[in-house]
Simulated scan of single mutants.
Amino acid sequence: MDTTAAIELRGVTKRFATEGPEPYTALRDLDLEVGPGEFCAVVGPTGCGKSTTLTLVAGLETPSEGTVRVHGKPVSGITPEVGFMFQTDAILPWKTVLDNVSAGPRFRGVGKREAFADARDWIRRVGLSGFEDRYPHQLSGGMRKRVALAQNLINEPRVILMDEPFSALDVQTRSKMSTELLALWDLTRPAVVFVTHDLEEAIALADTVVVLTAGPAATIKARFRIDLPRPRVVQEIRFDPRFVDLYQQIWEALRAEVDLAYSQITATPGQEDA
């Protein structure tokens, strides 16, 4: 059995250049490990570096200090075995559902017939059979998210990074999409890092919830193992007494960071260092 971490960040610090004399430190000395097949949710206040963490794993950014590895290999650029779902749709508006979902395999050299067959299978799995010839503007928000899921999963990534992918959806659609995500994830069990501001969503989905401190120079404050049984129905798991216990524990760790971030945003000039 392979015990190599799917994702490993060690001593990671990330700085960004600013117009002032000093760079902005988004993350400082961050250690994060996600095992193969593990679903990890990352929560924290606005501006704490959640999305930056994803871009480092994806190879879209490089750390200022420390190391980032995916399946034991240092990340030195965009990694083909990593899928990324963004907040906004990354599907191509001029292509049909079938063309969008088959684009990944075709880019990797798979023949058109095989790519279309695989795409139709994944379109069926995400519940969009009959919509193969539709364009994104003809789909609802939830349907576009299903296309994005199929677009990622057809490539059989070993790691999927998700940056608040359902935040634009209404509450009912969001819960339903979360349950569908878990069912699809269970088919191949890639490692997942799921960034969200919604603590209930994090607990309902994840095996592990990681709490980041308020920025700047954010780091990991606490980790919580989510011992709720699987398979889970997101709309129902929230009523489990253990879910309520976990929520209270994690909120205790998160609340102080949210309060600190809010005070930094609302402070008048000169008060920050008072």
Results as ranks from 00 to 15, higher is better:
S102P: 08
P74C: 07
P136A: 01
V68Y: 05
D89W: 14
T46E: 08
G130R: 08
A117R: 11
A90H: 06
E114Y: 10
W122E: 06
G130W: 05
T88N: 15
V97M: 02
S51Y: 09
P63A: 09
V82I: 13
T46V: 06
R125F: 01
A117N: 08
F116G: 03
G47C: 06
K95R: 15
G127E: 02
P105N: 04
H137E: 06
N100H: 05
F84G: 09
E81C: 08
C48S: 10
G49C: 07
R69S: 05
R134F: 01
T62Q: 15
P80K: 08
L54W: 14
E81V: 15
M85K: 03
G77I: 14
W94H: 11
R120H: 02
F116M: 10
T88Y: 12
L98A: 04
T52M: 06
T88V: 05
D99R: 15
H71T: 10
I91Y: 01
P63R: 05
H71F: 15
V101S: 06
V101G: 04
N100W: 02
V68L: 13
R124N: 14
T67V: 10
P63F: 11
S51T: 13
R124D: 15
T62S: 12
E81Y: 05
V75C: 05
D121T: 03
I123H: 00
D121S: 08
T55C: 11
T88A: 14
G59R: 07
R108T: 12
P80Q: 05
D118W: 06
G109C: 11
G49W: 04
I91P: 01
S102A: 15
K112P: 00
D121K: 13
L54I: 09
E65W: 01
K73N: 10
G83A: 08
W94K: 06
P45L: 13
Y135K: 05
I123Y: 00
P93K: 07
G66D: 07
T55S: 13
T88K: 15
G109H: 11
G49A: 01
V110G: 07
I78G: 10
D89G: 11
R124K: 14
